[in-house]
Amino acid sequence: MSIDLIGKAVYTAIWVAAVSLFMELLGLSTQKWLTAGGMGTVLLSLAGREVQ
């Protein structure tokens, strides 16, 4: 892995954490958003598989 890729991953993780914290401070639950995002990623990866 290159240093550039690791740096971008850390940068993205910090932004996601900051937005989640901001939403929590506003009173919005981020748990359902994170769950929906995870399930959406799984569904997209399964949809992209080849059918044999």
Rank of each mutant, 00 (worst) to 15 (best):
E50R: 09
W15P: 02
I6D: 12
E50M: 03
Y11S: 13
D4S: 06
T35I: 15
I6M: 15
I3Q: 08
G7R: 10
Q52T: 10
G27K: 01
L21F: 13
G38A: 04
A18I: 03
Q31Y: 02
V51L: 13
T35W: 00
M39S: 11
W33E: 04
S29P: 04
V19D: 05
L46S: 07
A9F: 07
W15I: 12
L44S: 13
V51P: 00
G27P: 02
Q31I: 15
Q52F: 09
K32S: 07
S2Y: 00
G48I: 02
M23E: 06
T12R: 15
I6T: 11
I14W: 08
F22T: 10
M23P: 00
Y11A: 14
Q31V: 06
T35F: 04
I14L: 12
K32V: 02
L34D: 01
A18G: 06
L46R: 13
M23A: 14
L26K: 04
V42W: 06
A36I: 14
V10C: 00
T12V: 12
A18N: 06
L28A: 03
I14Y: 12
A13M: 14
M39W: 07
L5G: 00
K8V: 03
G38H: 04
K32T: 12
M23L: 15
V51E: 10
V51F: 07
F22Q: 02
W33L: 02
T41D: 13
L34K: 13
M23C: 12
G27T: 07
A36V: 14
K8R: 09
V16R: 14
K8F: 00
T35S: 06
W15T: 08
V19N: 01
V10S: 05
W15M: 08
G48C: 11
D4H: 08
E50G: 06
R49M: 05
K8L: 06
D4R: 01
Y11L: 11
G40Y: 01
G27N: 05
M1R: 11
Q31K: 12
V19G: 01
A18L: 15
K8T: 02
R49H: 07
A17E: 08
S45T: 14
Y11G: 04
S20N: 01
L28M: 05
G48W: 10
V42Y: 04
Q52A: 10
T12A: 15
S29D: 12
S2Q: 08
D4Q: 13
L25H: 00
L28E: 05
A47M: 15
V10Q: 07
W15E: 09
Q52N: 09
S20M: 01
L43C: 11
K8E: 10
Q31L: 10
